[in-house]
C-alpha cells in the first residue's frame, strides 16, 4: 500500500486510507490506460488494468487447461499423466455432480463444456487476484530501480493503478451473467422449441386472474437471476479485498491517531495475523464462488429444460 500513496499526501489518514482501499479494488482510470488504443465506434478501446488481467487469465487458462487437454487427446494411449490427472478429477466432478443432476442425461454433453469454461475462467480470475504480484513488482521498481512513484511514464507504475481481480468488476461478471441469460433461452428453445419455451415460463391450467400476477413476476425473475449472479460474484470478490485492506489499514490509522510509530506496531500484532486468517478465508471464497456461479448457471439452464408443472 505504501507503494502507491506517493501522490496523495493531503488530508487526514482516514481519507487517505479510504481512497487507497477504493483505489486497490476498482479498475484503473480509462484516461491513464496501460496501453493506448484508438477509439472504435466512439468507444475508447484503451486497455485498463482489468482488461490486462482478463488477458492474463485467458493465457493462464490456455496454458494450464487447454494445452494439457490437447496433448492428452492426441496421445495414443489415453492414460492421463501429471496435470491431466487433476484436470480429469475436476472435469468429471463438474459433469457428474453439477451438470448431470440439473440438466439431465440427454443434454449433459451440450452444456458441460460451457459450465466447465465458467468454472475454470472464474476460478483463475479469482485466484490471480489474490496473488500480490504487482505490489511486489512495484516494490522492486521503487526500491531497487529507484523510480519515483509519481513518474507516470514508467510502465510498472502504470500497472500499479487499480485492483488485480478482474471478477471484482461488475462489468466482467455482468458479461458472464449475460452468457448465462442467453444460454437459458437457448437451452429452453433447443429442448422445447422457441414458442413453447416462453409458454413454459408460467405453469398452465391456472385460473385467469392468477396469470395477471404471475406473468410479470416470471418476467422480472428472468432478469433477476443473471443480476443476482453478477452481484454475488463481484461483491464477494470486492468485499474480501476491502476487508483485508481495511484491517491492514488499522496500523496506519492508529499510528496517525496517537502520532506514534509504536501504536501502529502494537496494532500490527493483532491486524497482521487477522489479515492472514482472512486471506485463508478468501482462498475458500475463491473456490466456493467459482463453484456457486457454475452450479447456479447449471440450475438455471436445467430449470429451462426440465419444466415441472
Amino acid at each position: 500500500m505504501l507503494v502507491s500513496t506517493g501522490e496523495q499526501n493531503s488530508g487526514g489518514a482516514m481519507e487517505q486510507v479510504g481512497d487507497n482501499i477504493i483505489h486497490h479494488v476498482s479498475n484503473s482510470d480509462i484516461h491513464h490506460p496501460i496501453f493506448s488504443l484508438p477509439h472504435l465506434f466512439n468507444i475508447d478501446m484503451s486497455v485498463t488494468k482489468h482488461v490486462l488481467m482478463l488477458w492474463i487469465v485467458a493465457l493462464t487458462v490456455g496454458f494450464v487447461v487447454i494445452l494439457p487437454i490437447q496433448r492428452y487427446v492426441q496421445q495414443r494411449r489415453l492414460i492421463p499423466t501429471g496435470l491431466m490427472n487433476a484436470l480429469e478429477i475436476v472435469v468429471s466432478f463438474v459433469r457428474d455432480t453439477i451438470v448431470k443432476p440439473n440438466v439431465g442425461l440427454k443434454w449433459v454433453n451440450s452444456w458441460a463444456p460451457l459450465i466447465l469454461t465458467f468454472l475454470f475462467f472464474i476460478f483463475f480470475a479469482n485466484a490471480i487476484g489474490m496473488i500480490p504480484i504487482f505490489d511486489v513488482l512495484g516494490l522492486v521498481n521503487r526500491f531497487v530501480f529507484h523510480v519515483p512513484a509519481n513518474d507516470s511514464h514508467n510502465f510498472i507504475n502504470g500497472l500499479l493503478h487499480g485492483g488485480p481481480t478482474a471478477t471484482g468488476n461488475f462489468n466482467v461478471t455482468a458479461a458472464l451473467a449475460i452468457i448465462t441469460f442467453l444460454s437459458i433461452i437457448i437451452a429452453g428453445t433447443k429442448a422445447h422449441g422457441f414458442i413453447q419455451h416462453w409458454k413454459n415460463l408460467v405453469p398452465h391450467g391456472l385460473p385467469g386472474f392468477v396469470y395477471i400476477i404471475l406473468i410479470p413476476i416470471e418476467i422480472i425473475g428472468m432478469f433477476v437471476k443473471p443480476f443476482a449472479l453478477t452481484m454475488r460474484l463481484a461483491a464477494n470478490m470486492t468485499g474480501g479485498h476491502i476487508a483485508l485492506l481495511a484491517i491492514l489499514s488499522f496500523m496506519a490509522i492508529f499510528a496517525d491517531m496517537f502520532q506514534s510509530v509504536f501504536a501502529g506496531l502494537g496494532v500490527a500484532l493483532i491486524s497482521v495475523p487477522l489479515a492472514v486468517a482472512i486471506s485463508g478465508l478468501e482462498i475458500i471464497v475463491i473456490i466456493v464462488q467459482a463453484y456457486v456461479f457454475t452450479l447456479l448457471s447449471a440450475v438455471f439452464i436445467g430449470m429451462a429444460i426440465k419444466v415441472h408443472h
Partner: peptide, 9 residues
Amino acid sequence: FLLEGVAIL
C-alpha cells in the same frame, strides 16, 4: 447460496 446472494446484494 441464494441466501448468501441476497445478503451480498
